[in-house]
């Protein structure tokens, strides 16, 4: 087994030397395809993570005409819970809202010196369970909360959530499209490279057959070649992505917006899957080409 692999790898090296411009083009295509796909995947995963983090802080605020009497609060909580389970329901009085505002204003709290809490409306803050945190269900929940007695208005950042949802959806489509590009470009390029190798080696393959080379002896190096293209191309693509990621973090790290995002690189399991998937794809491309173009 070891001896056979030695001869197959020797042939792979020979093929690379003999046909290096095509091999290089193929390698670059695989690298670029992996880079494009993993770039969008990285953005998508980070956006999803940010969405999840923001989701934890999601709440629906029901602004009321008047404060709810403490005796009525359990009744209203129970009414809300019958519609949708909530992690937490808070009744915020005018006074509590005023204290919050003072805290938020920090140094500018002097602005409130001559004002009392009367100008702020009392509210109910509802923190829905995770299962209720999709846009459609939130809208339904919001419509229900608007029917509560004394409810003036319900707010939960509808517009922002809607845009964020569309953005995530768009990213998902881009990831799927770049994934398709990866599959097509990689499969096609590797298949073409193997085809060109077969053509370039036609006379050599004829002589190999005449001296008794088995199908395995002839095909195995071409198959290994595909695998090598996959491993090298995907590793190179991911290394480039990591370099871009580090560069972005170093040079754009000062930006307030990016600092807030707390973005991370692809997890190890995902990078391993990309390398494994690309390698399988390239192996499949080379196998397809070998079967199609080599009649032994």
């Amino acid at each position: 087994m070891g001896l056979k692999s030695y001869f197959h790898l020797k042939q792979v090296g020979h093929n690379f030397r003999q046909n290096w411009p095509t091999q290089l083009m193929s390698l670059l295509t695989v690298t670029l395809s992996v880079l494009i796909f993993s770039f969008f995947l990285l953005i998508y995963l980070n956006v999803v993570n940010i969405g999840a983090r923001l989701g934890d802080e999601l709440r629906l605020v029901v602004y009321l005409d008047n404060e709810v009497e403490p005796a009525l609060q359990p009744l209203i909580s129970s009414k809300i819970s019958t519609y949708a389970k909530a992690d937490k329901i808070l009744f915020v009085s005018r006074a509590e809202a005023f204290i919050r505002l003072q805290k938020q204003l920090e140094k500018e709290k002097d602005l409130l010196t001559d004002l009392g809490p009367e100008f702020l409306p009392p509210s109910i803050e509802v923190y829905p369970e995770k299962s209720f945190r999709n846009f459609t269900r939130l809208k339904e929940f919001s419509d229900f909360l608007a029917t509560l007695p004394g409810a003036q208005k319900v707010q939960y950042g509808q517009e922002w959530l809607e845009r964020f949802g569309y953005f995530t959806e768009l990213l998902r489509v881009i990831v799927v499209l770049s994934g398709a590009l990866l599959v097509l470009a990689t499969g096609f390029m590797v298949s073409c490279t193997i085809r060109l190798t077969v053509v370039a080696k036609e006379s050599e393959l004829e002589i190999l057959r005449l001296v008794g080379a088995s199908n395995r002896y002839i095909q195995a190096p071409l198959f290994f070649e595909g695998i090598l293209q996959g491993v090298l191309g995907s590793s190179l693509g991911l290394t480039l992505l990591y370099a871009i990621f580090i560069w972005t973090r170093t040079h754009l790290g000062g930006s307030t917006f990016l600092n807030q995002l707390e973005y991370t690189f692809l997890p190890f399991s995902v990078t391993a899957m990309i390398i494994g998937g690309t390698t399988l794809l390239c192996a499949w491309g080379s196998l397809l080409s070998i079967r199609k173009h080599m009649r032994i």
Binding site: L3, K4, F7, V211, G212, S214
Partner: peptide, 8 residues
């Protein structure tokens, strides 16, 4: 060497 390599 070719025929010998082919025969591993």
């Amino acid at each position: 060497a070719m025929p010998m390599e082919v025969a591993y």
